[in-house]
Design a protein around this nucleic acid. Structure first.
Lengths: 185, 185
DNA sequence: CTTTCATGCTTATTATAATTAACACTATTA
DNA sequence: TAATAGTGTTAATTATAATAAGCATGAAAG
C-alpha cells in the first residue's frame, strides 16, 4: 500500500502497453498531447491529477485502481477440467465447472440468460460469497437495497446471505461467469 | 467511474481537519507553501501527483489510500469494468474484482494473455483450489505430467498444490475468467 | 533503393501550478 | 484599547507542466 517505490511512469507505460495502445492513440483518447504521455512515462514530468484522470480514462482505468499497487501475490496455476455440467433449465442456463463439487471449495458457473430471464428473489442462508464478471449483454443485479445495471466487463462481489436476484434487462442473451464459495447444496 | 464524483479538494480538507491540522501546519510538514493547501482544497488548482504525494505524506496517508473511497460503510457490490484492479504487468493482464481481499473468501480475475505469454513453472504450496473458463483464444495448460490445450468455452478446476504452468499457445490474445479460494497468502 | 506510415522522443512556446508576500478575520492577552 | 498570534484566502511572481511542431528510428509497401 505504500507509494515510496511507486514508479508512476513505469506503471502507466505497463498499463498502456498491456492495452496495446501507442502513446499517440492513448493521447488521442485522453484528449491530451502525445508528448504528455512520453514525458510522464519517462518521469520527466509529474502530471496534475486532472490530467492523470484524463489519461487514465483513455485506457480506461480509474485513478484509485491505478494507485492500488495491490501486488496480491497470485497463484499462477491452471488445470484441465471436465466438461461443463448443465444444471439449469428454462431460459437460464447454468453450466458448472466440474460434476461433483461435494469435496470442493469453489463453484464456477458459465451462465446464459435469455432476454427478460429472471432468477426471482433468492434468500440464501448459508455463509458464502459470490463474485463474477459480465461477459456480454446486460444484467440488472439487485443485492439488498442496492440495484445496478451491469454491462460487459463489469463485475460484482457480495455476501450471499443478502437477498439478491438478477435478470437480463437487455435485448440479447446475457453471459456471466460467476463463482461462489463454498458450493453447499 | 467512481472518480467522477471524487472531490479532491473536499477529501483533502476532510482528512486534514480529521487530523486536526491547520493548512499551515500541514504545509510545513509536507514541505510546501500553505497557499497550495488552500488552493487545492478549493479546487482552484489541480496538484501534480508529486506535490500531492508530499502533501499526503504530511497527514500522513498514502496516495492509493487517498483515492480509495473506502469510506463507504456499505459493502461494495458493483464494480465497473474500469474499476477492476490491474495487478498484472508485462504481457499478462490480471484484472481483479475488488481491491483489498484480505477479509474475503474469493478472488475473481479477468485475465488476458498476449500470444506466447507464459507463466513459467510455478510451485505453490498453498491449500487452495482454482477454477475458470476460457472466454476466447487458446491456452496450453500443464499440470504435473498432463498437458492439454483449452479453447473458448473450456474450463478447468484443480488443486493448486500441484506444479503447473500455462501459456497462450494461439495467435491472438487469450481471455480467461478465473476464481480461486481463499485469497489468503 | 525510396516512399510512406507509425512509433517514441525532443525542443520552444504557452498554459498552469507553486511560491512569496501580503490581506482580512478571529481570538486571546496585555 | 491595541497588540499579538492564530486561522484561511488572495495577487503577483516564479517554477513547472502541457502543447505544438518537428526529429529520428524502424517496419512495410511500392
Amino acid at each position: 500500500m505504500e507509494d515510496d517505490d511507486f514508479d508512476l511512469g513505469l506503471r502507466l507505460r505497463a498499463l498502456r502497453q498491456l492495452n496495446e495502445l501507442s502513446q499517440r492513440e492513448l493521447a488521442k483518447r485522453a484528449g491530451v498531447s502525445n508528448a504528455v504521455i512520453s514525458l510522464i512515462e519517462q518521469n520527466k514530468s509529474s502530471p496534475s491529477v486532472g490530467v492523470l484522470k484524463k489519461v487514465l480514462a483513455g485506457i480506461p482505468i480509474s485513478v484509485s485502481a491505478f494507485f492500488s499497487q495491490d501486488l496480491t501475490p497470485r497463484q499462477k496455476v491452471f488445470y484441465r477440467a471436465e466438461d461443463l455440467t448443465e444444471i439449469g433449465s428454462g431460459n437460464i442456463s447454468y453450466q458448472q465447472v466440474g460434476r461433483d463439487l461435494s469435496d470442493k471449495a469453489l463453484q464456477v458457473l458459465h451462465e446464459r440468460l435469455k432476454p427478460g430471464a429472471d432468477t426471482g428473489e433468492t434468500l440464501l442462508r448459508h455463509e458464502s460469497e459470490e463474485s463474477g464478471i459480465i461477459i456480454s449483454g446486460e444484467i440488472e443485479l439487485t443485492v439488498g437495497d442496492q440495484r445496478k445495471i451491469l454491462k460487459a466487463g463489469d463485475a460484482f462481489y457480495f455476501d450471499s446471505r443478502i437477498p439478491h436476484r438478477w435478470r437480463n434487462s437487455g435485448e440479447v442473451d446475457a453471459v456471466i461467469i460467476s463463482a461462489c464459495t463454498p458450493p453447499t447444496f
